[in-house]
Computed example of a mutant assay.
Amino acid sequence: MLRRAALLLLALGAPALAEDAGEGGQCRKMRFEGTQFTACAVDMERETLRLWLDGPDGRPFGSFSALDAHLERGGERLGIAMNGGMYHPDRTPVGHYVEDGQEAMRVVTSEGPGNFGLLPNGVLCLQPRRAAILESRAFAAQEPDCLHATQSGPMLVLDGALHPRFIEDSDSLNLRNGVGVRDGGRTVWLAMSDGPVNFHGFARFFRDVLGTPDALYLDGSVSKLYAPQMGRRDIGLPMGPILGTAVPAG
């Protein structure tokens, strides 16, 4: 009973976080149970959140700098961004992927190895002014019309409940990044742990701190974040899909 009351208070207080959303998203550092996280809010009614994979040459952008340079040629710039889902060695998406309404990879509904196949996994669906995270089999049954979509796994939070396979004291610690949706799809939180964390702790950060009833794991040790307003432009191995905001240049 006390735990339910505490969660209710968190849920009632959480909307204040959404007020930080602005052009390019607003990012802040937060500490939860001894681990520091960086979380960025995106207001879907005021901002453009989308996915990118390939550049004009047909090859994956691979880095935030390459994508930003491409956007600048069209009068935009990259606002905030992070890894947009798991990918194969050739950087093609492991699961469902839609960009500008064009499907590049079908929905995968079968259980499989690794984190991606740890069912339930899910799909982030981006529509004009709204976002949703749906469990993959429910997504496949509904076939929603997504302007952009990316599938990853496991689900971190599904309708307010943590993934059933997560262990609270698990020693599987890693950098992790993910995405959560709240406020009926009007607010999206992109978050990354700045230190090693297990799945249980990462999921509770989304549910209990960011107030997202649905959240999806995107990637682990290769996770990178682009948040220039914080002086952060992570570099590393080439990426596959990139999830982020495009804002006017200047």
Rank of each mutant, 00 (worst) to 15 (best):
P89E: 05
E111H: 14
N198T: 03
S136W: 02
A131D: 05
S152E: 00
V42D: 08
W52F: 10
V197A: 11
R3S: 11
L124P: 00
P213D: 07
A5W: 14
P196S: 00
C125I: 03
Y217L: 12
G25K: 02
D57Y: 12
V197H: 04
R130K: 11
F64K: 13
E45P: 02
E23L: 13
L147R: 15
E135G: 04
F32L: 03
A18C: 00
L118P: 02
R233L: 06
L243I: 13
L49Y: 03
A191W: 09
C27D: 01
L2W: 09
T187P: 04
D68L: 12
E72V: 06
P15N: 05
L158F: 01
G240F: 06
G195T: 12
R182S: 15
L78G: 07
G180L: 01
L118C: 10
L173F: 12
L225H: 00
F116D: 09
E47F: 05
C125D: 04
E99A: 09
N174W: 01
G185F: 05
Q142Y: 03
G13F: 02
P89G: 02
M155D: 00
L134W: 14
E135H: 02
L175K: 14
A138N: 10
V107K: 11
G178V: 04
R186W: 00
I133G: 09
L71Y: 13
L158Q: 13
F205T: 12
T92W: 05
L17G: 13
A203S: 14
A132Q: 15
S65Q: 15
V107F: 12
Y217N: 14
A5C: 12
D234S: 06
L126E: 02
N83S: 11
Q151A: 11
A249I: 01
L162W: 13
V94M: 08
D43T: 05
L190N: 01
Y226W: 15
P213E: 11
G84W: 09
F32T: 02
R137C: 06
T187N: 05
D171H: 08
V209W: 03
L237D: 08
E23V: 09
A138V: 13
D159Y: 08
C125P: 03
T212N: 15
G114I: 11
A104V: 11
V179F: 03
R4D: 12
S110F: 01
T187L: 03
L134E: 14
G34M: 12
V209Q: 14
G236Q: 09
R129P: 05
F166V: 13
P113I: 10
T109Q: 09
M230C: 00
V98W: 02
L8W: 14
L175C: 02
M192S: 11
A141D: 08
L9P: 00
A81D: 06
E135S: 00
M30K: 13
L53E: 04
G25I: 05
F206H: 14
W52Y: 12
A140P: 08
M86H: 11
A227W: 02
G195V: 10
S221Q: 15
M230N: 04
S170H: 06
S65K: 15
G95T: 06
V42H: 10
Q229I: 06
G195D: 14
G85M: 06
L134Y: 10
G114T: 10
M1K: 15
R91Y: 04
M230S: 10
M82T: 14
I80N: 07
H163R: 10
P15A: 01
A18H: 06
S65L: 14
L147D: 12
A215V: 10
H70P: 07
Q142G: 03
W52V: 05
